[in-house]
């Protein structure tokens, strides 16, 4: 099998195999943390960190990890990195940590990370695995930021907390509530599938 270049892995994670709008993975947190761009950015960074380093570690241990306990090992590694992120946020960004609430801890159950460990990292060397984790984390962050952009703009009239729409603009209250993420994400997937249909293998 020919090895993919880092650029191919990146473009796959970001677009052609994007975990959120191509594979519809990890959307629970996509609904919960996308009403403000600032929270979404931190969540994105947290997820990128966890996917990249979990993939790297799983890949580094791939030749000695017994096959039958590999899932346990993966969960242990992912959970450790998530706790690192959670502690770092609590210590250095307490306000953001409070805003994200339980969703940082819930990164452990995000299917994207386990999916990459199981589907890619355990069969590939550390560097491509790291890039793959990074690419999928970026793909997730990019879609979430797009959703948050629409929700914060229409729901609060602001971007990253800075008001950009005039007071006369009627705020769309629904955009602040969780269901709005369904509408925005659904529209996003619809547009992506209409204009850039997935190539049949």
């Amino acid at each position: 099998m020919m090895r993919e270049s880092s650029a191919t892995i990146l473009s796959k994670g970001l677009w052609s195999d994007n975990p959120v709008f191509r594979q519809i993975l990890g959307i629970c947190s996509a609904l919960a943390v996308t009403n403000l761009l600032i929270n979404t950015s931190i969540m994105g960074v947290a997820l990128i960190f966890v996917t990249a380093f979990s993939s790297l570690t799983v890949s580094a241990l791939r030749n000695i990890t017994p096959l039958r306990i590999r899932m346990m090992v993966q969960v242990l590694i992912i959970a450790s990195y998530v706790i690192v992120v959670d502690m770092a946020l609590k210590a250095y960004l307490p306000d953001i940590s409070r805003a994200l609430g339980p969703y940082v801890g819930l990164i452990i159950t995000n299917c994207i990370i386990m999916g990459r460990c199981e589907g890619y990292a355990r069969n590939n060397p550390p560097w491509p695995a790291f890039v793959d984790g990074l690419a999928n984390g970026l793909g997730y962050a990019f879609v979430l930021l797009a959703v948050a952009f629409v929700r914060e703009l229409l729901g609060f009239g602001s971007l990253f907390g800075v008001t950009v729409l005039p007071e006369s603009f009627t705020r769309w209250t629904i955009m602040v509530m969780a269901p709005a993420a369904f509408f925005v994400l659904g529209t996003f997937i619809w547009i992506a599938n209409t204009y850039w249909p997935k190539k049949e293998k």
Binding site: I69, V73, L76, M87, K90, A91, P94
Partner: peptide, 29 residues
């Protein structure tokens, strides 16, 4: 037996590292 020993040591390393980090940030938190 190897599976058990492997899991044991990996858990030890992970929890050890996290415990150290927790000690380091506890006061600040």
């Amino acid at each position: 037996l190897f599976s058990i020993v492997y899991m044991f040591f990996l858990t030890l390393v992970c929890t050890g590292a996290l415990a150290a980090l927790e000690m380091g940030t506890r006061e600040r938190v």
